[in-house]
């Protein structure tokens, strides 16, 4: 655990001066990357450690985005909105988890998948609070664009740091142990005295709170949110693919997976604008078929041997 925190600290020292060394394009990329690193780590809590196939990250992300947006429109400062978003996400995940965590496998996957759709529809219909399909514009703030880009880079860096620190703590604690036993055999874990329900609910709540926090910061960063954007099912799928790419249930796998995926994504975006989603799909298919255990399962010596022959 101490080694992991040391790595986190080194990472922070390396990333801290970045906003003052680069242009806004790189800053935007970096902020996006940190956002997905946070979301991947959040998903890893329930999907990676406990092995519960949650397809509900978009629900928490969107809920957090709207909680933060509504608070800011009503005159609260950005950071208040972010913390509010995290708390709303926490409360919602606790309530939802109490119901859906009784399901397993396909039923759990479907139940989490539909939550985002339901929230999207409610947000669309609740015009007076959310602005409905027209979306929500954040209050105008007089700020230098470069200063703004720097602030949101640091805000997302804080999200990623909190997520990674939470992951390190969970991985090294009794909770992490309980979650791993649930992944292997939940009935057996419960029989030998692991309180599986509590462990699952805590992991789900952490996952939801972190996802909502990131959504809250996203609102301030982008300045405008609409239901179709923040409840996009891709916010549920991308973190899963990133975690699978980097190594599920590990501490740094989600970080590496998110970085690798976004690098690929950026190259594809730039070069294939019209077929971007199709190529993204192709990458997902190839990854699932040929690299199901993530990049970490690649054996470099063997690859080199093969290419040498």
């Amino acid at each position: 655990m101490r080694r992991n925190f040391l790595i986190l600290l080194i990472g922070l020292i390396v990333l801290a001066p970045v906003p003052f060394l680069t242009d806004t394009y790189v800053l935007r990329l970096g902020t996006t990357a940190l956002m997905y690193v946070s979301l991947s780590l959040a998903w890893n809590m329930i999907g990676g450690f406990a092995g519960y196939p949650s397809f509900g990250m978009a629900a928490f992300f969107g809920l957090g985005a709207y909680a933060s947006g509504i608070l800011q429109v009503n005159g609260f400062a950005g950071p208040v909105g972010w913390i509010g978003a995290g708390l709303v996400g926490l409360a919602f995940a606790l309530a939802l988890g109490a119901v859906v965590l009784r399901l397993r496998g396909h039923a759990f996957a479907i139940a989490t998948l539909v939550v985002a759709e339901v929230l999207k529809e409610i947000t669309n219909a609740w015009n007076s609070l959310t602005g409905g399909g027209m979306g929500l514009n954040m209050p105008y703030q007089k700020m230098d664009p470069i200063a703004g880009a720097r602030i949101y880079f640091y805000a997302m860096l804080a999200c990623a740091t909190i997520s990674l620190a939470a992951t390190i703590l969970v991985a090294g604690s009794k909770l992490g142990f309980a979650l791993r036993t649930i992944k292997q055999n939940e009935d057996a874990a419960s029989m030998v005295g692991v309180n599986t329900t509590t462990a699952k609910v805590i992991a789900f709540a952490l996952s939801g709170a972190l996802g909502a926090l990131v959504g809250g910061v996203y609102t301030s960063w982008i300045n405008f949110i609409e239901p179709a954007d923040v409840y996009d099912p891709l916010f549920s799928i991308k973190p899963i693919v990133m975690v699978l790419l980097g190594g599920s249930g590990t501490v740094f796998g989600p970080v590496l997976g998110a970085a690798a995926f976004l690098l690929l994504d950026e190259i594809v975006w730039r070069n294939f604008l019209e077929t971007h989603t199709g190529i993204l799909g192709l990458v997902i298919v190839l990854l699932i078929l040929f690299l199901p255990k993530g990049l970490g399962s690649l054996s470099w010596p063997r690859l080199l041997q093969r290419s040498a022959r």
């Binding site: 693919v241 989603t277 799909g281 298919v285 699932i288």
Partner: peptide
């Protein structure tokens, strides 16, 4: 991938769906 966990199969068909959807739009 038939017979693997729902995470793998669902993500795979999601990826295929992205490809199909893109093709339909084009």
């Amino acid at each position: 991938v038939v017979g693997q966990s729902v995470l793998v199969t669902l993500t795979l068909t999601f990826g295929l769906d992205l490809i199909f959807n893109n093709a339909l739009i084009l």
